[in-house]
């Protein structure tokens, strides 16, 4: 693979990742969300592998493999199992309606692009253009957490944010040092486990996963 092709491929994957982010924002069904999330992980892992290959950085393969394992297989599986067990396949109600969310999302992408433009000029890496996409993905994940009601969807939003971070790490910097990558991966895994525990706890104590039930701790004015 020549350099040019890999750039194009990488940009292409970046576009897909962005697309999946929007898809996550638009998707109403939990199961659909999971599938899209797995796809996003897959694109991410692919992108890492391409960068690893092009720039010839060994440890990026490891992180590509980790991503594949974690984001495409393990986490979606855990969530899937959870959903099945708790039987929560109903539609997810967004707090803000979807067209509005999409419009905000578009604005965020433009904003991220504008923000990273000067930085991009400085970089010598071939993957530098993707920094904007990474930032957008993070912000879109954030937006998703804000606009969705259910605990599970918040978890997916959170993981989507992490995807954005991963993408930033691989694409903007050719990956962080391995120790850090491993540590981050471990943390995410623990986080996912805790999410699982939590969703059970919430389910058992509140009898629902709707976060609007969890508004008891507040200030009375």
């Amino acid at each position: 693979m020549t350099h040019g092709i890999s750039i194009q491929l990488n940009n292409f994957l970046a576009a897909f990742i962005l697309l999946t982010s929007f898809a996550l924002l638009a998707q109403r069904r939990i199961y659909g969300l999971l599938v899209i999330f797995a796809w996003q992980g897959f694109f991410l892992s692919l992108s890492s592998a391409i960068v690893a290959y092009t720039a010839d950085i060994r440890h990026l393969y490891v992180s590509a493999a980790l991503t594949l394992l974690l984001k495409v297989i393990v986490l979606p599986y855990i969530l899937y199992a959870l959903i099945n067990k708790l039987n929560i396949f109903r539609e997810v109600e967004p707090l803000v309606n979807i067209p509005t969310t999409m419009l905000i999302g578009v604005a965020l992408v433009i904003f991220s692009y504008h923000l990273t433009a000067p930085v991009r000029e400085l970089s010598t890496l071939f993957t530098r253009t993707t920094l904007a996409v990474a930032l957008s993905t993070v912000l879109l994940g954030f937006l998703m957490m804000i606009t969705r009601k259910k605990a599970v969807t918040q978890v997916i939003g959170f993981l989507a944010m992490e995807n954005g971070l991963f993408f930033a790490a691989t694409s903007a910097t050719y990956g962080m040092p391995l120790v850090v990558e491993l540590g981050v991966a471990l943390d995410i895994l623990i986080a996912a486990l805790i999410f699982g525990i939590f969703i059970f706890q919430i389910r058992t104590t509140f009898d629902t996963l709707d976060l609007t039930e969890m508004e008891k701790l507040k200030e009375d004015s």
Binding site: L211, T212, M214, E215, K216, K218, E219, D220
Partner: peptide, 11 residues
């Protein structure tokens, strides 16, 4: 007024 900052809604 500052109490309004804290509604209890995580969103």
């Amino acid at each position: 007024l500052t109490a309004k900052l804290q509604h209890g809604r995580i969103h």
